[in-house]
Design a protein around this nucleic acid. Structure first.
Length: 564
RNA sequence: UGGGGUAUCGCCAAGCGGUAAGGCAACGGACUCUGACUCCGUCAUCCGAAGGUUCGAAUCCUUCUACCCCAGCCA
């Protein structure tokens, strides 16, 4: 058994367990339902879920729905779908921060009673100017020493609905001179007369993230609150809230909270050159450049799913990417590698010609069709076999013929022998061209003793190409997607608002010739077009009888035709 | 001297005083009825820089440099 090194979070948890700080582990993924999840969230989901599984603890999806002005029910449904898909767990426990509003309110009342929080009547602008700057301390709020009784009364007013938005806030009394701006008497409750998707009009005051989050974690028994680095300097406040709001320390006799959680931060995941900015994507959606957040060229979780990525591949990608505190940018190539690895033994290999040219076997009898038996995937016999028709006229890939071959080219050129996969060895004789000199057909002769499986099939040839029988070929549309990448110039021009996109982000191959088995688009979930990569059916574009196949990921290719 | 954080191969990332794991990418070569896959091999005398401590440092100390985050009644 190989020793796999543990990431720094596991090391911390191990120590907590060893020292008896906790006797179990519980984690959570706490998104605000204000948008779609992307690959970066996948890291957090899988990290939190994975830790819980590994330590035989609990995990939950908790919506951080403390700001009704930004949150939408549709996003909750999308997030639930993505989390279930990524984790493969249909029974994921789902919770809502809004279910704890009563507990949070009670905690705020306690802080007020103990003189640790006060009602401020400063405006937002005033609070900002009183806060000071990055290099200078702040000024104390004139309301800072308001008597607890009065603050309590005013807090009740806020809650009752008689206070207009922005007129009062509840501030924690900490330290206006702190070097950490989060500790300069942060606002912990604000007035917002907005109906909440889940609590309706019950509340018109809502807790701020810094106050709500630690309490949410504590209430539901979270032990390790894993979040990204930008929250690192919120941790002192997180700890302050927990300590100051829990009279018994959360674990004493009259404990009111299920746990005393601990926040640990890790670095976000970024993908090299990949556009993740919401404003850019929003603009692309608005301008019709992409057809939504799940456009296959994007990296939202929904987009990856539609593109045909498997959750297994994404899990592996996150696992291989590693966890650390160092700012990092992952290679898209690693994601592709993970997908190829996953699909390699799952996907049947099928024939399709994306850029077809006719191949005519001049010495093959006319009017004859034979059947060629093929294993769906040699590395996965359980995937079964299928039969393909073969006759005198076939379709082959345009790039599989060169009238004047370049060095190391082993495919068809006059005089060269090539194996037609699973069928015969043919010798190229000539080609036909149209007025512009474009090749319209290739001629060859075959050796009937070289059929696969026959004694004469041992003959070695350097090249092997795939093919599709012409009369039975099934014509489909194939889309080759590339990611919409952010080149060095930037995908979005701040000055004129224009988008700078790679024009080849999608290449459509109309008239691709596929083997007949693909007529039933449902035949295979994901499949590999020989030498073209892995494909699947686009569920959004699927119309019965006319499926659109699109590429999930390319194969590695080590022979490149020289640029013309 | 605002506060916080990070610096190990092109990209991730182990390492925690004993003489630089691993993966991706890349490059050779073998194999191959997919130029895929597989397989073998190569790929940091050096760990942001400079000093110091030590028999010995990426790991300890000092100074410096670069980059990231923070001034929402967002999360």
């Amino acid at each position: 058994m190989e020793t796999v090194s543990r990431n720094f979070i596991e090391v911390e948890i191990d120590r907590d367990l060893r020292e008896g700080v906790y006797d179990h582990v519980q984690t959570r993924f706490p998104p605000e339902p204000n948008g779609f999840l992307h690959i970066g969230h996948a890291k957090s989901i899988l990290l939190n879920y994975g830790i819980a599984r590994q330590y035989k603890g609990k995990f939950c999806l908790r919506f951080d729905d403390t700001n009704p002005s930004k949150e939408k029910e549709e996003f909750m449904q999308a997030i639930i779908k993505d989390v279930k898909w990524l984790t493969g767990d249909d029974d994921v426990e789902i919770r809502y921060a809004s279910d704890y509003f009563d507990a949070m309110y009670a905690a705020a009342v306690r802080l007020i009673k103990e003189g640790k929080a006060y009602i401020s009547t400063l405006s937002a602008e005033e609070i900002r100017s009183y806060r000071g700057t990055l290099t200078e301390g702040g000024k104390e709020d004139p309301d800072r020493n308001r008597a607890p009784e009065e603050s309590l009364r005013m807090f009740e007013e806020m809650k009752s609905g008689s206070v207009p938005d922005g007129a009062m806030t509840l501030r924690a009394k900490i330290d206006m001179q702190s070097g950490n701006i989060n500790m300069r008497d942060p606002v912990i409750y604000r007035v917002a007369h907005i109906s909440h998707p889940r609590t309706g009009d019950k509340w018109c005051i809502y807790p701020m993230y810094d106050f709500a989050h630690p309490l949410e974690d504590a209430v539901e028994g979270t032990t390790h609150s894993l979040c990204t680095m930008e929250f690192e300097d919120h941790r002192p406040l997180y700890d302050w809230v927990i300590r100051e709001s829990m009279p018994e320390g959360g674990t004493g006799e009259g404990k009111e909270w299920a746990s005393t959680p601990r926040q640990i931060e890790f670095a976000k995941m970024y993908l090299e050159n990949i556009v993740t900015g919401k404003r850019y994507i929003k603009k692309m959606v608005e301008e019709g450049i992409v057809d939504g957040w799940d456009d296959p060229r994007l990296v939202a979780v929904a987009a990856l799913r539609r593109r045909g990525f498997t959750p297994e591949a994404i899990r592996q990608f996150v696992a291989l990417s590693g966890i650390s505190k160092a700012q990092s940018v992952s290679d898209y190539a690693l994601l592709e590698y993970c997908l190829r690895e996953d699909l390699k033994c799952k996907a049947p290999r099928v024939f399709a010609i994306l850029d077809p040219v006719r191949l005519i076997i001049d010495n093959y009898p006319e009017g004859v069709t034979e059947e060629i038996g093929i294993e769906n995937n040699k590395e996965a016999p359980e995937l079964g076999t299928r039969k393909l028709p073969f006759s005198r006229e076939l379709w082959i890939e345009r790039e599989d013929f060169m009238e004047e071959p370049v060095k190391k080219y082993h495919r068809l050129y006059p005089g060269n022998e090539v194996r037609l996969m699973n069928a015969y060895i043919v010798t190229c004789t000539s080609c036909e061209k149209d007025a512009e000199g474009r090749v319209t057909a290739v001629h060859c002769t075959y050796d009937k003793d070289t059929k696969s499986g026959m004694p004469g099939a041992d003959k070695k040839v350097k090249g092997t190409i795939h093919w599709v029988e012409a009369s039975s070929a099934y014509t489909a549309t194939v889309r080759l997607y590339e990611n919409i990448i952010d080149e060095e110039k930037g995908v979005y021009n701040e000055e004129d608002g224009s988008l700078n996109l790679n024009p080849d982000s999608v290449r459509v191959c109309e008239g691709a010739k596929c083997e007949p088995s693909l007529k039933d688009a449902q035949a295979f979930d994901r499949f590999q077009f020989v030498r073209a990569g892995y494909f699947c059916v686009d569920e959004k574009d699927h119309t019965p009888g006319a499926p659109v196949f699109h590429r999930i990921v390319s194969l590695k290719s080590s022979f490149k035709l020289p640029a013309t």
